[in-house]
Computed example of a mutant assay.
Amino acid sequence: MPLALLALAISAFGIGTTEFVIMGLLPDVAADLHTSVLTAGNLVSAYAIGVVVGAPLLAVVGVRMSRKHLLIVVMGVFVAGNLLSALAPDFGWLVAGRVIAGLPHGAFFGAGSVVAASLAREGREGRAVATVLLGLTFANIVGVPAATLLGQDVGWRATFLVVTGIGVVAVSALAALVPYEPARPQQSLGRELRAFRDRRVLLVLATAVFGFAGVFATYAYLASIATHVMGLEESSVVWVLALCGVGMTIGVAAAGPLTDRAALPTAYAGLGGLAAVLIAFAFTAHITWVAMVMVVLLGAVGFLMTAPLQTMVIRFASDAPTLAAASNHSAFNLANAGGVWLGGVAIASGWGWTSCALVGACLAIVGLVIALTAGQTAARRATA
Rank of each mutant, 00 (worst) to 15 (best):
A331I: 14
L25T: 08
R124N: 11
T17L: 03
R98H: 03
T164A: 15
S118F: 02
M75Q: 15
V366M: 12
C244Q: 02
G167I: 01
G24F: 13
F108W: 07
A324I: 02
V114L: 06
A86T: 05
F138R: 00
V290S: 04
G231V: 05
S327M: 15
A175K: 10
L241C: 08
R127P: 00
V95T: 10
H105V: 01
V209T: 10
L363W: 01
T159M: 08
Y47G: 11
A357S: 13
V77F: 00
V290H: 05
K68G: 01
Y268S: 07
L70K: 03
V204G: 09
M305I: 14
L323S: 08
L368E: 06
L71D: 08
E181D: 13
A267M: 11
L243E: 07
A48P: 04
Q152Y: 02
L33F: 06
G165V: 03
S172I: 12
L33I: 03
A307E: 10
R191A: 15
L297I: 04
E125F: 00
V51F: 10
A267L: 15
E122I: 04
E192W: 02
P89T: 10
E234K: 11
S172G: 13
V246Y: 10
G352I: 11
A267K: 01
F332E: 03
L26P: 01
R67C: 07
V277C: 07
T35F: 10
P2T: 09
V44Y: 01
A361Y: 04
M292D: 02
T373C: 09
I166K: 00
A255R: 05
G143Y: 05
E233F: 14
G155T: 02
A116M: 04
T354I: 03
V142P: 00
H105M: 14
F332M: 12
F212E: 07
V53H: 07
L94H: 03
V171T: 05
L161K: 03
G302E: 01
A96C: 06
S11N: 10
V313L: 15
V252G: 05
D153R: 14
V215G: 00
F160N: 07
R315W: 08
P321D: 12
F108G: 00
V99P: 00
H228N: 15
L271F: 04
E125Y: 04
A80Q: 03
V295I: 13
V237Q: 11
L334T: 14
